[in-house]
Design a protein around this nucleic acid. Structure first.
Lengths: 235, 235, 235, 235
DNA sequence: AATGAATGAGCCTTCATTCAT
DNA sequence: GATGAATGAAGGCTCATTCAT
């Protein structure tokens, strides 16, 4: 169970590839319906060797959840803390969320579908992180309401609408299809902001600022690949 | 699999109760993670007897999907065919959908989570039905756009937003909690209609009409229980 | 895991036979080195059917321990409580213990060798029972010392010698061989009692009384079979 | 399995340390229940390196048996061949045996518990050595009987009692506890010799001689460490 | 209508061992 | 000397399903 102390240089690379494949299979067939044998066949490794890398099947699930949750949360914290208009931050956050969904759709399937297969402390951790994520959104919506940009009677319900609209996207979206994250984010935010009573002028201004932000603040890595980097090293 | 030719009078009653219980278990633990043994224990029947009623495990899944899809579709067809304003029909449809979600949350969990465990023709049937359901919504949105109530550039995307907002509700809703289907429907439709550019006046009028409709047209059984009657027997 | 609620009339019979076989295998190969597959082969049952009867492998170990401990303890309590000379009671206890060892040698192997494979509460229970057994012996030795029949400076050490001498017998004894439990008991007690300073007269008297006791009090089932009856039902 | 032809100077040292650790683990968990991985972790060596030293898992068992059997047998032969009273030799042998038990209790656990995991010729060898050991004891008891010190009707049974009393000690003894090998040996021999009909005077004299022997004949290394020297190297 | 009993495939995991480097 | 990586068999156990009664 405890992975051996030392590993060769390729260990982590191979390990990550195995988790990639696991995410694919779990997304396609479901976590419970995917056997470790299936995974072994898919990566071309006997079961014994597989366990050398993965520790346990549940571990794979944990890793996949982390691959979603960790960049999502750190990115969301970063955006929520920006010194700009709350509508803009919601708009940026929306695009980040959709970017992650697009970029690793299989992970999102697992994340949305199979988190209940987690047990014990891992589940608790995950639920805590989800809760933090939601509260950051609630905070932004409340800010926007307080400054008068939105009319939000119930922030919790507004948050849930925000989440419904974004999170369910994984069910039908096809990366490389008609729409990209930026487009979908614009549409979703238009619906939500207008739906929550924003003035058309505010909406237009938010889009302008978002465009400018993405152009000027490129060091905030909002592009799909960067979002998945473990951590912005150095720089 | 071939259900025995002759049944006693209670056969169907017990069968339905077994499916009830199956839905509960599948919702709580997932279809793949629930064993036929679990079900047997929950209904107090030995496995042999269980199979007398259920035919196979997958059969239960099919039945549950049907229990969701069939009233949903028939109700949606009924509403879509009403001779009233498209906004009103969307509003009624929204409430029906949410009513179903609230009324049998466990079935919806299974419907949303485990439909991919279906195989072959059953899956095809289901996907077809889902597609029809979506097209009915698309039709209403298009109607509303044509008559000028909404500004909908891309009906497909509008439909998907409608679905996202409603369908993801099962993930967090607690029946008996703060909000009921009527309330949520009002909120969701307010967001969507306003978000899609409806005039505030149209919104208010739609709500009025919806209230009147639900008062006067009670013969259209929109109450939660009726929605779930397996089929209007004897016609 | 939970055995089905109802069983046919043969269930318990078959179950006991499976435990018999398990004891044989565990005794011959050791608990850890015997696989459930081995057992299945030995009883002519597929693994699935086996688990229908046994619940788990550890369960078998628990049952086997119980088969040893339960008659041993109840018999020992019974003898220790007799209203007779402590030397006689020690002598009767010795013979009972050896009788059990002879009667189900394979169980004793498991009992002596593999009790450390038990985990959690089962192990605690067993250790408690063993402790009670030992204390009953210590009590008798102390009684004998108090009344002057034995000179026992350290009752604990005397008890351990008693146990060493008896318990290690399973390692080499061959039921049906040169010696039977009654003979061995006479020899062991002669060594111990004399070794502990008993007068030769006391020794002879104890043997006489033991013979008489076994003749007259036959309702105290000291014969090998009876020792294994679960409990003398209704007289 | 074929140990590499040339070793560095530390090879044997490390090898012995690995066997030490193996004995600890086997004693605590049982041979079958201890994995080579466990051992690797305990000695801080990867499995590959481990096999360089140990050859195979069974090899460890063989080595451990040898570590018990070889000094026990050579010491027993030495003592049995002394030109002194048989009672004294039995008494010295008893103390040697108990010394070995105390000094490496873990080895004795393995020796007593897991010898049946040996296969083929190794098992035969071991059984032969055990038999020789027992016959040396039988010989001494017979001698004592012939010279009239003991009344032993059945030397084989007397031997078995001697062995029972000593060998079962490993089950409960705690080195560093209330009793040491010398004390236990005195007690055990008192019980046995008196139990076998020795005169109290003979008993006392034997103890005196044993004390003197251990004082004067220190060149016979009866101290715990010496007993364990792998072999008197260089003579 | 229902049951107890059985099966064989498959589940996740660990094992002792090997071997190129 | 030592390692990381791999294997194939086997471990205990659960599964959906069947069927005689």
């Amino acid at each position: 169970m405890p992975r051996p102390p030392g590993h060769g240089p390729d260990f982590e690379v191979r390990r990550q590839k195995i988790i990639d494949t696991a995410a694919e299979l779990f997304a396609r067939q479901g976590y419970a319906a995917t056997s470790v044998n299936d995974l072994g066949r898919a990566v071309g490794l006997a079961k014994g060797a597989l366990y050398y890398y993965i520790g346990s099947k549940e571990n794979l699930l944990i890793e996949i959840q982390g691959r979603v949750m960790s960049p999502l949360l750190s990115r969301t914290r970063q955006i929520a803390g920006l010194d700009t208009d709350p509508l803009l931050r919601l708009r940026l956050l929306s695009e980040s969320l959709l970017t992650i969904i697009f970029h690793r759709l299989d992970h999102i399937w697992v994340y949305e579908h199979d988190y209940r297969s987690l047990t014990g402390p891992e589940l608790q951790t995950l639920l805590g992180q989800r809760s933090e994520f939601e509260q950051l959104i609630t905070g932004l919506l409340t800010e926007a309401a307080e400054q008068g940009s939105l009319r939000v009677a119930e922030p919790r319900l507004a948050t849930l609408q925000f989440l419904n609209l974004h999170n369910h996207t994984y069910q039908w979206v096809k990366p490389g299809g008609r729409w990209d994250p930026a487009y979908l984010s614009r549409e979703y935010c238009a619906t939500l902001f207008r739906g929550f009573g924003a003035a058309d002028a505010d909406l237009a201004e938010t889009e302008e600022r978002a465009t400018a932000f993405k152009r000027d603040r490129a060091e905030l890595p909002l592009d799909p690949e960067a979002v998945w980097e473990p951590a912005p090293v150095g720089r």
